[in-house]
Design a protein around this nucleic acid. Structure first.
Lengths: 227, 227
DNA sequence: CTCGTTTTGTTCTCTCGTTCACAAACTCCT
DNA sequence: AGGAGTTTGTGAACGAGAGAACAAAACGAG
């Protein structure tokens, strides 16, 4: 049964669009908090920092949720995007590696408010197993399999040094995790069917440094001015 | 004098390539530490997690630094990329907002080793001004202008809550900073000539959640399996 | 009911990025 | 010296994404 049925609600949304949906979601939440009930594509695009044509095209992949001549109902569109991304459900998440970054992630409120629930903090260092971070006990890394089974965890976050990251990833995959967010500066090898996204703090700085250097040399600014 | 001289050493490197250069740099450093003196595009591509054709094309924008039939000299290529990105020089950086994330960033060793030197940690909260994080004193946010002038800071990092981020960005720009790395979940408005890059921890998780949801619904895996 | 105004949804075009495929260039072996 | 075997650098085909432009749809005024 590998054939795609035509009734699939979500066809194929382009990757670039998927990456922007959370941005729109955040913008809509902001508008909602400001008491805005309706907004045009122009307004929403401004709040999200993108072109209005691009926004409309992105939204058209989800369906026709706007009203011509009027705009979008903020609450309704917000729900539709949230449902499409999957943040209406609850996503249990484990964080491995409770160093500085692990601490910051465990305390980050933005996860909770978007449906991500940190069910466990794991670290290989026994000295940390007495700690409690953000109300969650730090447990031995060897408990990974049990925790994943118990909570049905599908998403894992790696905040270890690079040297440990591949081993952690292997064990995550073995335990049944199929999506990994990697903060370690390493390239992970994982089997097909497992998604990995990488966030590298120093890479972003290096990209800025490149353009900064060019600015200092009198090169004209590239297009990506604002964000 | 807005015309581009043909003697410009660095012509126009595509944005996508610039974003990958730091990845290659890291891969080369790893190879170097393993004692590898020479590598083929195939090996380096594997270490960086990209296609070898793409790697070769990327490198071709910098110049011809390889030897046909042999490959690339690891040290030489590493230096060339480092010079091109600008990480051979010293980049003074200020971090504003010393919460959990600010702490993690201040302690992150990956900055130092790539030429980024944290010259100041700033926070608006007077209670934090007694602290010392990673050997650097936390100072009042109002010192920003003086510090930027003193150290010639061009790059600023925002690790504040979203509510404060725009104000911090405005003051950074006023102080003369022209590149901003924004960790706050907000869209910053900045004048032309100022570069902003954004890292949003929860957005990455939401993107993973989207694909995870599709996997759970029996959709075939998309191409972006490994990373 | 009709017309003008507003704003979406979509089509078309163009630019940018990726991948393929191969000639040029280098090494090694005989 | 010459030929076989590698590996780079790049031209060309291909695909995806961005932006402009416009037709279709809703609304309000008269």
């Amino acid at each position: 049964m590998t054939t795609r049925t035509p009734t699939d609600s979500a066809r194929d949304i382009p990757e670039a669009t998927v990456a922007r949906l959370p941005v729109y979601l955040r913008a809509l939440t902001t508008l909602s908090e400001q008491g805005t009930a309706t907004c045009s594509s122009e307004e929403l695009a401004a709040a999200a920092g993108v072109n209005s044509a691009k926004l409309r095209k992105d939204l058209s992949y989800l369906g026709s949720y706007g009203t011509r001549g009027v705009g979008y109902d903020v609450e309704y569109l917000r729900y539709q995007i949230a449902r499409q991304i999957g943040v209406t459900q609850d996503w249990p998440v484990v964080i491995v590696g409770i160093g500085n970054l692990g601490h910051a992630l465990a305390n980050y409120s933005g996860f909770r408010s978007r449906g991500f629930r940190v069910v466990a903090l794991l670290d290989a260092d026994p000295d940390r197993h007495e700690e409690t971070v953000a109300g969650v006990d730090v447990r031995p890394f060897s408990d990974l399999g049990q925790i994943v089974r118990e909570h049905g965890v599908a998403i894992g976050v790696i905040a270890t040094p690079a040297s440990a990251s591949q081993d952690v990833a292997d064990q995550m995959v073995a335990a049944g995790i199929s999506s990994i967010l990697n903060f370690a500066p390493s390239v992970l090898a994982v089997p097909d069917g497992v998604d990995v996204r990488k966030v590298d703090l120093s890479i972003e700085l290096q990209i800025l440094a490149y353009y900064e250097q060019r600015k200092a040399n009198g090169e004209p600014t590239h297009k990506g001015g604002a964000a």
